[in-house]
Design a protein around this nucleic acid. Structure first.
Lengths: 236, 236
DNA sequence: TGTTCGTCAAGAGCAGTGCTCTCGTTTTGT
DNA sequence: ACAAAACGAGAGCACTGCTCTTGACGAACA
């Protein structure tokens, strides 16, 4: 990991310090308020020197985004693992994953906004961010897959089947993840997945103001409903 | 409406022109790229003159946000009205409302991001925006209410009931809207409501890239699933 | 009719931004 | 030991939101 030469080592250290300070600035000022000059000031550097390490503000943003996806992915993975080890049923593992996303988002609101909020204008996320962005989805889909394999997803009655037009997308997703559950299940899982992030975003971005006050209780209930939509059998 | 004196009339006209140009800038550069100087330049004005009409950039943003909420609210109201006049069942009216939100968002992505995306850092939405922000929700809840009154919501089987902790929030929401449907139904409606905006945001903010290509078909199916969650009986 | 007063556009200016360029210095690989 | 690469510092460009002052114009009142 650590570069051989002294220069490479100090460079890696400086890159780490820059992203660290940038993350702090992000937490206080938000993505749009992230200033390369302020980071440089904090480091006792001159602003132009930063450009030796990050060619542009967007490159620094990309590094922060990848770090963020990995952080939420790691939180989700840890939450799923402990829930599994504690013998939670599939519905409990789903809820644990949802809670992990919400708690990470509440702890790092600006980073969450950077990942799942409005795209920064003029910034195009490079392809490097894709694998990191899929970490949480993979965990989520694995729960669905295991539940399906264990025959623990009940058909959830009169849900409409996925239309033929979606067969291509869903087949591609099944092959990429990979997962054996039928396409109808994948479609329901995607819907619940979008519902999870929609709920977190609503809470974080203020859409629940003056409407929902018992945020945690509402969240748990809403995720239980979405879990039902996927087909998890809820305990209570 | 039009002010009495000539001065008031030309002032109102200028305010309209400013917000119009600002909306155009918003459409091309996004919220963070909205520049008072650029608006002034476009109008052949000097930058400082803008401050006679909008004391700060945030005030201009507030005006745009209120306009935006009203625009999406109006689109939703129109869609619901035509669906109702065409004798659509409740599921069809729900789908029409969802489509209206998505189509408005696709047509005005930056305005949508301003309303439902990450909050602009350092900007606190004033209370003036609240009534406009509720227009679409009111339409949505009215469908649920009518469906419940017509006994057209089926209990959707084994959905978990809303926990007692949420009784306060849900009772307040029922009183404010107002609506007679039971609290379990309101909770399911809120979940679907968040799922709608979560799906639109995912599509708009790029989370579906390389995953879902048939966006419209996926959206319709996902909304049908969420409609099932609420209790609408889907036709097919 | 004449004067006063509030409104307006204009311009200069402040502090901040991302980013580029140049200029010496230091470190690296040969 | 020497050339090449990497580096920090500084000046500078074009841009931002915002403030302050100045002078002109128009409406209301005496």
């Amino acid at each position: 990991m650590s570069g051989r030469t002294a220069r490479e080592r100090v460079r890696a250290e400086l890159v780490r310090e820059i992203t660290g300070i940038a993350r702090e600035q992000l937490a206080t000022a938000g993505a749009a308020g992230l200033s390369l000059r302020a980071v440089a000031r904090e480091m006792g550097m001159v602003s132009s020197a930063i450009y030796r390490y990050f060619p542009s503000r967007d490159d620094l943003l990309t590094a922060l985004i990848i770090d963020g996806y990995n952080a939420v992915g790691e939180a989700v993975e840890r939450a799923e693992e402990t829930a599994r080890k504690e013998g939670e049923p599939f519905a409990g593992r789903w809820l644990a994953v949802c809670r992990a996303v919400r708690e990470w988002a509440l702890a790092h609101p600006h980073e969450y906004a950077l990942l799942y909020g409005s795209p920064v204008p003029g910034y195009e996320a490079p392809q490097d961010t894709v694998p990191a962005a899929l970490r949480d989805t993979v965990v989520f889909v694995r729960i669905v897959e295991e539940a399906h394999a264990a025959d623990a997803l009940d058909p959830a009655g009169p849900c409409p089947p996925a239309p033929p037009l979606l067969a291509g997308d869903l087949a591609r997703a099944r092959a990429a993840l990979p997962v054996n559950a039928p396409e109808d299940v994948i479609a329901r899982a995607f819907t619940a997945w979008a519902g999870l992030y929609g709920t977190v975003s609503f809470e974080l971005f203020g859409q629940f103001t003056n409407v929902i006050e018992e945020r945690a209780a509402y969240f748990d209930h809403s995720m239980a409903l979405l879990g039902r939509l996927v087909g998890f059998r809820n305990a209570p």
